[in-house]
Amino acid sequence: MSEENGFSFTLFQPHRTRTPKNDEPVIEVRPNGRIVFNKKATQLLENNHFCMLGYDPEKQALGILPMEQLQPNTFPVRYAAKGAYIGAKKFFKHFEILPGQLVEDTPFKSGEFIGINL
């Protein structure tokens, strides 16, 4: 329509386009040992209030296995308005994989596990 009048408008489109964070699941691993799920990633937990944690040293990935009930070595999942989190400092220290800075990634499913690359 604009070309009929002799105009060819270029739309303003900023160089960096960011999708809103809530559009896709994101899990953060923080230097304080906290694993934080955004609202979309929280759905992967399926309202379970506990989880087991695993580590794959070859692929440098964290595995989160949601559990319905408290069992030995489970970690509690804390739900909040904007998502959920797991306090897992002992886990990261045990494997000596506590990140020095924030790690943020899109989770993946591997069997019953929710995985994230570290």
Rank of each mutant, 00 (worst) to 15 (best):
G83A: 01
A80W: 06
Y79G: 08
F75M: 01
V77W: 07
Y85A: 02
L70E: 09
I97Y: 05
A88W: 03
Y85E: 05
T74K: 00
T74E: 00
P76E: 07
T74P: 01
N73T: 11
K82P: 14
A81C: 01
H94V: 02
H94G: 07
F91L: 00
V77H: 08
I86N: 03
A88K: 02
K93R: 13
V77P: 11
K90V: 04
E96S: 14
Q71C: 08
F91H: 00
G83R: 04
G87F: 08
F95Y: 12
K89A: 14
A88F: 05
G83M: 04
Y85H: 08
Q71W: 02
F91Y: 03
F92Y: 10
P76A: 05
G87K: 09
K89R: 14
E68W: 01
K93W: 04
A88E: 01
K89H: 08
V77D: 05
A81M: 06
A80L: 06
Q71A: 11
K89N: 06
N73W: 02
P72N: 07
V77M: 10
G87A: 10
L98Y: 13
N73A: 04
N73H: 12
I86M: 02
P99S: 04
Q69V: 08
Q71D: 06
Q71F: 10
N73C: 05
Q69Y: 01
I86P: 04
K90I: 02
T74W: 01
A80M: 01
K93P: 04
P72S: 13
A84F: 15
I86Q: 02
N73Y: 04
H94S: 06
Y79K: 07
L70Y: 05
P76I: 12
V77K: 03
P72K: 14
E68Q: 11
Q69I: 06
H94K: 12
L70M: 10
Y85V: 05
A84K: 15
P99G: 04
E68A: 06
K82R: 09
V77F: 08
F75A: 02
K82H: 12
G87D: 13
F92W: 05
I86F: 15
K93G: 01
K90S: 12
F95S: 12
Q71V: 03
Y85M: 00
P99W: 09
F91S: 00
F92M: 13
L98P: 15
K89M: 04
R78E: 09
E68H: 03
F95N: 01
F92T: 13
A84T: 10
G83T: 05
G87I: 13
E68R: 05
N73P: 03
L98F: 14
R78V: 10
